Computed example of a mutant assay.
Amino acid sequence: MSAAYSAVHNNSCLPFIHTWVIKEFQHFCDKQNLLHFIISEPFNSPAPNDSNNNIKLEYTWRLVADIENIGEDFSLYMYIVALQTDFEREKELNDRISTFRFKVFKNQIHGNMNSFEEFIMFNQNSFTHRTKFGIKNAHGGKLCKINQLFPNNDTSISTNIIIRVHINELEKSQNDFKNNINNSSLFSYSLEQFFNNPHFSDVTFTFDCGSELKASRLVLAAKSTYFMNMFTGEWTESNQSKIAIKGVKYEYYKAMIYYFYNGSLDSGLNFDALMGLFSEADMCQIEDLIVIVANKIVEMISNENWHEILLMGWQSNNNYLKKAGLKFVHENWLNIKNTENMKFIIENLNVEWMEELMSISKTNFYRRA
């Protein structure tokens, strides 16, 4: 049994807050009848208005409590799920960039005692995430072990779990986000003097080429929820001082870590390096870096590389790269339709991508007619 309520402040700078209460949580933790997923009812939060039609929009979400069994330990994980709205479906949007902050509490009634306690979530700070739609793309992390919720493993204690999620949508444009992202960072000043500095590092990344890169866990975790989860979760790497990075070029990973320390990109990155950096940022879900690198890549689009940008947009589900690639095809169709790059794209298409490309070619055909 669960209950929920929401609150939104008139001041748009303050977050929307939704509270989900899972009552009698102890019943879900009975190992004889363990229910792994507990899913909240859908709830809505304010979304940026459609400036073209002045329509008031909302985003739809669900929260998920997941009890996972890792070895002999049962642990509680919390996730947020983005549900695609009719407006997003109409606009062919596949994800949304949002900021989140979780607060989780437990309320226990044991005899005449009534206790209320806050639990430290995987990341108490607000974090930005590109949330794709659907439960398989839920974003979150580990809260605690189940036995931490119940003294002496006594699951007969009446226990309510209260989850509060703060959601504050990013209404900035790509360029605004790129120019102002450092203002929201934990470290707003450059740490370049500490980059790859062994005196201020406690983890070393090794690469297939034999190169090594030193970094601070604190800096990486502060800049990225991916690294926060790596160093604080159940990952093998969480307790390792040396972490092997397989199948990734040293230059790409170095550029990502450099960004964490300096707050800006290395000015010497060429197109190939930017594409490699984009792949790493996308895999690690470094949302601010994804936006900045995508902007740089699009600025360099040409007859020689448009096919790589378009394919990357499709493969990473990045609308900014995809639309830039399709726009280039539309505007340069006669010059590129019979090229090796077009042949390369066609050989790598799936049905959905083929339909998008065909719609561009048909538009050009009718335009010429």
Rank of each mutant, 00 (worst) to 15 (best):
S2V: 08
H9K: 09
S12I: 13
C13K: 15
F25D: 01
I39V: 12
N49T: 06
N54S: 10
Y59Q: 03
T60D: 00
R62F: 00
L63D: 02
V64K: 08
E68F: 12
N69F: 06
L76W: 03
M78V: 10
Y79N: 05
L83R: 01
D86M: 08
D86Y: 09
R89E: 10
E90T: 05
E92M: 09
S98E: 14
F102N: 00
K103G: 02
F105T: 01
K106S: 12
K106E: 06
Q108M: 13
I109Y: 12
G111P: 06
N112E: 10
N114T: 11
N114G: 01
S115M: 12
F119D: 04
N123H: 08
N123Q: 10
Q124K: 07
H129N: 08
H129L: 07
R130I: 02
R130P: 05
T131H: 09
H139R: 10
L143I: 13
I146A: 01
N153S: 13
D154I: 02
I157R: 08
S158T: 15
S158V: 15
I163K: 01
N168K: 15
N168A: 09
L170N: 15
N183K: 15
N183V: 14
N183M: 14
S184D: 13
Y189G: 04
E192G: 01
H199C: 10
F200P: 02
T204R: 09
T204S: 10
F205W: 05
C209Y: 11
S216G: 01
L220T: 03
A222H: 08
Y226D: 04
Y226V: 00
F227R: 00
M230S: 03
F231R: 00
N239F: 14
N239K: 15
S241V: 08
A244V: 04
G247K: 07
G247M: 11
G247F: 11
K249C: 09
Y252L: 06
Y253P: 03
K254V: 03
K254W: 12
Y258E: 02
Y258M: 07
Y261V: 06
N262A: 15
N262Y: 10
G263Y: 06
S264A: 14
L265H: 03
N270G: 11
F271Q: 01
G276W: 03
D282L: 00
I292S: 12
I297V: 15
E304P: 05
E304I: 08
Q315V: 07
N317A: 12
N318S: 11
K322Q: 14
K327R: 13
F344W: 15
F344P: 00
I345R: 06
I345T: 10
N350I: 01
E352Q: 12
E355V: 11
S359L: 04
A369F: 15
